[in-house]
Structures are given as C-alpha cells and as structure tokens.
C-alpha cells in the first residue's frame, strides 16, 4: 500500500488549563531528547519523561502535564491515565525527602514495623503524610527487592538497608 504523503501527526487535546506548559533548561531538554531517541514511538518515553519532569518540578503539576502532552503528542488525559497507574509518579506535591519503608513480608518479619514507627515518632507524621515544612514524606511501600538486607527503606532513590533505629537517626539527621 502506498505511503501517506503528508505525515499525519496525532493531534492532542489541550484542556483549558489556566497554565502554560512548563519550560526546561537546554540540558534537561537534551536529556529528554536522549530518552525520546530510544524508541520508535514517542509515547514509549512517557515514564522516563515523567521522572524528569518530577525531578525538575517536584511532582506532575498541570504545567508539567501540559508539557508532556505537547512533547509526546498526547492528550492531557492520556498523561493522567498513565501517571495515576504507577505508584512512583506523584500527581500531588510530595516532601523533599520521601522515606519509603518496605512493609512486605520479609521486611515485616525482620522489623519493618519498628522502623516505620520510629520514623513516625521522629518526624511526627503518620505514613502517607508530609511534614509541615514539606521536608519529609513518609510512606509504607511494597517489596523493594531488598529482602535479604531487611529492614530497609528507600529515601528518594537511595536504598538504606539493615536498618536500626540508630541508623535511621544518623541518616535522617545528616540530611541538609
């Protein structure tokens, strides 16, 4: 069959958000281009790009969503449906440091509960909450593939394993 002569790009459906799309530095744009270059289909880069936007803007805010929609040639609702499926993508603001204590079996039976409680008491927030100053968020998450070094938590992207309350104090107190 003959090929279309005019390249047909999908149209996206911009909703009337009272924001304009986010803008990023040349370096970030370059990083985004590198991700896009990996795939024959733009949409495939949606997760990597979400992490970039999240890193730059703290979470997927409307401006970021609009940026992604334009950049990937999608509708904002397409961004939303994907973003809300994955537990590591935030559509709400989140603390500067996100403490994610693994609560699944191996960690549980090696004392994950105590770690969560310790963090809770130390920060004065329950799992799922963020401190007033927006510095810390605390969550209990499912298995992080660190069962052999339980209990553990992931602080943003860093693993901290074989935890004890003392170790937790050291880690949290050392944070700027």
């Amino acid at each position: 069959m003959s090929q279309p002569l005019t390249k047909i790009e999908p149209l996206y459906q911009p909703v009337d958000l009272d924001v304009s799309p986010a803008t990023f530095s040349a370096d970030v744009e370059a990083e985004i281009d590198r991700h896009l270059a990996k795939y024959p289909v733009r949409r495939s880069a949606i997760l990597p790009l979400m992490f970039v936007v999240q890193r730059e803007r703290g979470y997927l805010d409307p401006a970021g969503v609009l940026y992604l929609a334009n950049r990937l040639g999608l509708r904002t609702t397409d961004i939303w449906e994907v973003a809300t499926f994955y537990s590591m993508i935030y559509t709400e603001p989140i603390g500067k440091y996100h403490i994610q204590v693994c609560k699944t079996l191996s960690c549980k039976i090696r004392g994950a509960g105590a770690i969560t409680e310790h963090c809770s008491r130390k920060l004065g927030i329950k799992p799922g909450e963020t401190t007033e100053d927006g510095k810390f968020s605390l969550s209990e998450v499912e298995c992080l593939g660190s069962c052999g070094t339980a209990p553990m938590f992931q602080l943003n992207f860093d693993y901290h394993e074989n935890l004890t309350p003392e170790k937790v104090d050291q880690i949290l107190d050392s944070l700027p």
């Binding site: 909703v15 409307p62 969503v65 509708r75 904002t76 609702t77 939303w80 809300t84 499926f85």
Partner: peptide
C-alpha cells in the same frame, strides 16, 4: 481509566 486496582475510576485529567 485512571488509578489502579480496586481504585480504578473512569475520568479525565482534572
């Protein structure tokens, strides 16, 4: 559809 598992809901962005 947004969300996951038992918390999946039909909807749109915003």
């Amino acid at each position: 559809a947004g969300g996951r598992g038992a918390h999946t809901v039909i909807g749109t962005y915003l």
